[in-house]
Design a protein around this nucleic acid. Structure first.
Lengths: 248, 248
DNA sequence: TCCTAACTCCGTATGCCTTACGGAAATGGT
DNA sequence: ACCATTTCCGTAAGGCATACGGAGTTAGGA
């Protein structure tokens, strides 16, 4: 990545703060950066990040492929803009109520976002872009636990914790949903093909606990798992632990 | 995916149980499936999953690209074999000690595995393959909490919980490590370019808590974060919550 | 012994992808 | 009126997975 690309991308991220800095010599652009970013988000929402391509973004805007590169430096920078854009979709209402309720809202907000935009879970996060919406949200997340009894260091850890936990559980949830909606071979067919091989190869007494637990889980949940309930269960345990830490 | 591919891949996954079923008409294969899988793991370890390609696996074995397809049906099936293979690297020692220690080991084992093979965090997990090592490990994970007071349903939830939590935190950790090792622009250069823009755009009073917390975290950890400590802190809170749930 | 079915290895081709480069045309400042 | 600047985009290079078919190798059966 070139340093001028970094500069340019930062300018795009903070475009609403900085205003549009261009000298306006040449032809007018037929689209706007916001339209490009929104089109890109739409493509990723519909098809996921692996199938997300510059060409599909261009098609959606009635532009040809290479024109997209006059709006953004490249694919990965565009993804950075998409991440900050969707981080701005949620409201960040003033915090109220007890600590537990505040932390719950922080986690729930991320849970919702991951389900609205499952491709967020596939974004490579080394060297994350620092954009306005991501920054605002981090401030809001910290504000949720400000004054609760954590040190500054612990505040950062708690936010990282709630985010990482929620991301991990959302990944399981989103994967399960994708499996259910998967085109091609259906779930039933899948098991029809798997079952005979697995029965031959996994004698029941080799997996006594898995067998029992899997049977119960399969009856209780209609399919494989109920990720939302697992998220709630885990979040409650994690919050119990955090409350205990603050109070004790 | 064709149903015959599913059958074939299951056969490959359970190859040690099933034996090699081939009629042996044609020429002998120059490599073995195990060599292919091990070469593939080596490529992914060194370059990550996006840069992992069938050609690189072939090169490493002295074969030409298309020969790989006589060993495995395709790229995604090969990745399935890799996942099960690395799941077999860890020992699954008999459980001992109190519940907390057992759960800690379950989480630590995954934490280590994610750091030994960071590409595991990039694997698409819808419709996971059911292989022998993954199955054995699930049984072992359940055994860790058997008899601790959870219902069967809760046992599955707790294992999912520990796995998901650990995956979420490991992702942050691995991303941070990748950033540190990143070639191209160094961390220092990165911030040198970011700083002037961000200072102009993020006045200190707009982000009072982030500013304070970020400063403290930046001093305490030398760079951005210390993911291992955050993982430990979070795991302790989660285990506190789970113990409280079991005991009360 | 020898034929032939089955199998391995791999060259070629198709159709994706990102992105570098350069040309044509449009536009606004001077 | 000119021309620097900018947009749009065609082309091409170099990457990817994988379908298809051909050539050569091997073992089993006649």
């Amino acid at each position: 990545m070139e340093s001028q690309d970094i500069d340019r991308t930062l300018g795009l991220l903070w475009r609403r703060t900085l205003g549009t800095p261009q000298g306006s010599r040449g032809p007018k652009q037929r689209a706007t950066i916001d339209e490009v970013v929104r089109a890109a988000i739409a493509v990723a929402d519909e098809e996921g990040l692996p199938a997300f391509s510059m060409r599909k973004v261009a098609d959606r805007l009635g532009l040809k492929l290479m024109s997209i590169y006059t709006y953004v430096p490249g694919r990965s920078e565009l993804i950075g803009l998409m991440v900050d854009e969707v981080a701005g979709e949620q409201k960040l209402p003033p915090h109220e109520g007890p600590l537990r309720q505040r932390m719950t809202r922080v986690a729930e907000q991320l849970w919702d976002e991951f389900h609205r935009h499952p491709w967020l879970l596939q974004v490579e996060n080394s060297r994350p872009w620092i954009g306005p919406n991501v920054s605002d949200r981090y401030e809001w997340q910290l504000a949720a636990i400000e004054g609760a009894g954590f040190t500054d260091l612990q505040m950062d850890q708690v936010v990282t914790l709630l985010s990482g936990f929620t991301a991990g559980m959302a990944r399981a949830s989103v994967d399960a949903r994708r499996t259910a909606e998967r085109s091609g071979i259906s779930d039933a067919e899948w098991w029809e093909i798997n079952a005979p091989v697995l029965e031959r190869v996994m004698p029941a007494d080799a997996y006594p606990i898995s067998g029992r637990v899997g049977r119960v889980a399969g009856e209780e949940y209609n399919a494989i798992d109920d990720p939302e309930r697992t998220f709630r269960f885990g979040l409650d345990r994690l919050l119990d632990g955090l409350e205990q830490f603050v109070n004790g």
